[in-house]
Amino acid sequence: MAVKEMPALPNAAAQAVDVQERKKPLGRRIYEGRVAYTMLAPTFVFLLVFMYYPALLGLYRSVFKWAPGLDSDFVGLGNFIQLFTKDRVFLSSMDNMLQLAAWYVVSTVGVSLFIAVLIHRLRGGRTQYTFRLGMILPVVIPAIVPLMLWKFIYDVKVGPLNAILTWAGLESWTRAWLADPNVALYAVMLRNFPWVDGVAILILLAGLQAIPYEIVESAMIDGATEMRRFWSIELPLIAGQIKLITVLTIMWGVQEFTAVFAMTQGGPINSTMVPGMWMFFNAFRINKMGYASAIGVVLFLLTLVLTLINMKYITTEEY
């Protein structure tokens, strides 16, 4: 209620206006909100056509055996039962996804925290600025470029990784990193070494810089060491940022399959398969659209559960 915020009106008067407003008939209030509805209309047209309709259609199709142009057979929960009881590839893809997501969380939080603290402790203002810029700059390299470069780095014949191993006398370690089912998942996982994530670093650095300096100062005067300063003051105070990065990374890790798509397409022998890629494969390579929709629904439910857990148990408190 716009009027309520006006400081000029005393409280009682404001409430009177408020009651008066509320007493107006609904039709009248809707008429008065016509500008708002007009402003929302384009948004909702787009959302209805390109978001709600596909999302609901995805739910609906997941209970059918369906390929475009053919009759669809209602199979109830059959697709889901098959996914979780008979589909070995799907189950191993869930396992791969968990491993990848766990690694993404560990590497993103660990490395970014380390770098953010290092930058924060720099005493020269200019060096601080330079490194902050240097860390964020790679964000604007199109994501496909490092993926392609790492595909090349892992190449069995001409890739620099094998060249370095050979040069270091570890010839027995060389292999076809992305074509060997035993190591392909780890190769995909460990790409982009040293795992600098500019966005996470900036978020953490902002958290560190928002800590009132008096807190740190008084601890230092009391003789706290650098390690103590980190564990007892800074870490608890940027817990909110760390949680945020963790949640965002997990959510992203559940759906992400661009890296797998660009590097291995899920192979060799499905050793790097993730659910998103398996869904893509079912839908667009072997035309099992209904079955693929069911995988999409599983991913949706997973995201939903994670969101609810996040809302219920992990609230970000401000200090």
């Binding site: 929302l40 948004t43 909702f44 959302l47 056509v49 390109f50 978001m51 709600y52 309709y53 596909p54 999302a55 259609l57 995805g58 199709r61 475009p68 559940v254 759906q255 399959f257 659910p275 998103g276 869904m279 893509f280 839908a283 667009f284 659209m289 693929a292 929709s293 995988i295 999409g296 629904v297 991913l299 949706f300 995201t303 939903l304 969101t307």
Partner: peptide, 23 residues
């Protein structure tokens, strides 16, 4: 209406990929 939009944050792009393609 606001919560209707908010709920879309939970819909992963994977779920809408196939129906959007058909659409």
């Amino acid at each position: 209406l606001f919560y209707l939009v908010l709920s879309l944050m939970m819909v992963p792009s994977a779920m809408t990929l196939i129906p959007s393609f058909v659409l």
